[in-house]
Design a protein around this nucleic acid. Structure first.
Lengths: 210, 210, 210, 210
DNA sequence: GATGAATGAGCTTTCATTCAT
DNA sequence: AATGAATGAAAGCTCATTCAT
């Protein structure tokens, strides 16, 4: 992924796109139907309310088929989490990683995640339920332990951000995106372009200058 | 935690304490045992994994007794959420509301909430699960829609914080406390006193000056 | 009860009345409240649906009180059956037994039972449920094995009715009263005075002449 | 029972039989096992005493299977009533409907029903419990609201029976069959062929001549 | 690969009954 | 005599999972 910066941006895009496509092509039509059906149900009824028999109807597959692809409900939930995280990560990376400027990436990463969640509220609800449930056995408090942590650590190492434990920045940066998205999804308050820029500005100001 | 209150407000404290006590005295011994047992189990096994028969053993009461106080498992969960939220709110208010200085309260509110969650991680886990579950039918993205929103709005109105939609500040302030608490509870990273002050400083800087 | 025919009718009436009163005076206020409450519930919800806790509310007594008077739910049901049967039998006897003419008694017995059931449909429903339930361990197919059987046997012995097994007459006589009452109670068809007389006429004709 | 059909109606019989068979073939093997098991238990222990776990053993199926075919215990009971009523109706129709003479049908209908109940006492017990229970929400006081009512009305219209409300005849005819059957099933008194003919004679006499 | 009837452990809940007050 | 909180066995029912087709 690092060598992409050398390619002209169009080529990179195609490259990454097709990579994402490749990943998704690994999933059969039935599998995707199951994931999408389960997303719908978990968003509506929670983990508890998402029974296999409901899923059977929602995804228009038989129980047998589900158990052909997944060895248990737990297994389905874990793979489903990976599926949607991979999709989200790919989507963010494509739009952000090619930019050379750190500050620009700082803005874009926040913004693109916010936009993804507000455009896919069911994914947000699913993630938040998963993260806080016993399915999440690694007990990671948020996703992107990799990508976002690395990005913020890079900011510290490269002196874009003032020296501090990266966790401090993760708390501020990730906490605000997720909370802002949830306010948007659950409440009826929408942050417009100006609001969002103001928020990221304050975040950047606080994190880069103090 | 008690010695943090340095004011000669012994009378006030007693007053407020007894008020809290009054509220808690509305709950019978059995009810509290049920709440505490359920907290233990939800933190360990999630909503789904918290069966009534497990709760029976954990709280040392019979199923009949649980259904004497609560008309269903759902009802129990909802009342349980109210119970712990009331306890937390009372605890924060007591320690914070008497301070006259806004900035000091800005620091204290963040800190006390962080400390409460890190000292009562099971409450944090329960809250996060509840908030994101279908039990939370008001779909409020966080608690304290009242107290914390009001506090931040007050900051804007009184010009301690720069003009902006209060939701922007809620996202930054609440998002960072909760994420920091989760990093602490789930990860093994502890933010020490210096770290915490640094974080709140950055938050204050971002929110008050830009 | 036999010697009553010698007394002047007014005296008999008083006599029997007070006898009935005596019997009912053996029941305390609470007991009667329980019987009446249970009648209401059994008529509405059946035996299965008549739980002790529902009865508690319907009769405005505590569980403890019910178990003070009855040693189990079964015991309550059995005593309740006796209570209402005794009331009904007394009511019929008073109105019928003093008449000297067999044919008149034949008409009156049928009629009074029909009227009692249509005026007390809940008693009919309760009786029919009880008779056909496992509570009725004697497995008697109808009440009054005594009174009505005896009355019809008397008719055969005294040659008012043609010789035949008394059971044949029980089937015709009791069967038609109960079915007519049920048609009235459950359906919306009301048999008026003429209809009722026609029916009894046909019954008398069939039973006395063939 | 088969030899009672003296007509050269082999073809008809086969025809009707296979019609009945068709109806029964709509029921799967498991469904029938459940119905038969439930009949056994309701006759012995009543509705209340017929628990799903008992039925599980009696019918040699799992709880899951029962709930695969029926959505609740209530649903099972209602469908079970239809099942046995259909069987009974078919059985009576086959043996009776082909006869041309009204009086002969008058005798046969009564007799065949009586014989069916005495040969299938559990069906009688189940019917009587069902009819008087809250399951019977149409609150029909007896079955065959259709067939038997129609038959007796036909008798009035065609002047075989004296003019009167058909309900009067329903009460006499149906009431006597059911009561006679119950006397036979519950008591130890058996009405022999002569008794039965005597009873129907009296009924016919009462109903056709007065 | 796909189906869905069948399974039965285990779930939430009810309910007759007890007993300290 | 009267109360009603407490009990826990057992009820009705669900649901993840299997397996013959």
């Amino acid at each position: 992924m690092e060598d992409k910066i050398l390619l002209p941006s169009f080529a990179i895009r195609m490259n990454v796109r097709s990579k994402e496509m490749q990943q998704l092509q690994e999933f059969s039509e039935k599998e995707i139907a199951i994931y999408e059906g389960a997303l719908e149900l978990v968003a509506k009824y929670g983990f508890h309310g998402t029974s296999m028999s409901l899923l059977t109807k929602e995804a228009s597959v038989s129980t047998g088929t589900i158990y052909h692809y997944f060895c248990s409900k737990d297994d389905l939930m874990k793979k489903m989490y990976c599926y949607f995280r991979t999709r989200l990560e790919a989507c963010i990376s494509i739009q952000v990683d090619e930019k050379p400027d750190y500050k620009e990436r700082f803005y874009l990463r926040w913004l693109k995640l916010y936009l993804y969640y507000t455009e896919h509220p069911k994914v947000l609800v699913f993630f938040e339920q998963y993260i806080n449930s016993p399915y999440n056995q690694e007990r990671s408090p948020h996703h992107f332990t990799g990508a976002y942590f690395k990005f913020l650590k890079e900011g510290i190492d490269e002196k874009y951000l003032k020296p501090a434990k990266p966790e401090i920045y993760v708390a501020m940066y990730m906490g605000s995106v997720i909370m802002a998205s949830k306010i948007n999804v659950f409440g009826s308050i929408l942050l417009d372009e100006t609001d969002r820029e103001l928020l990221i500005n304050k975040l950047w100001y606080g994190m880069s200058e103090v």
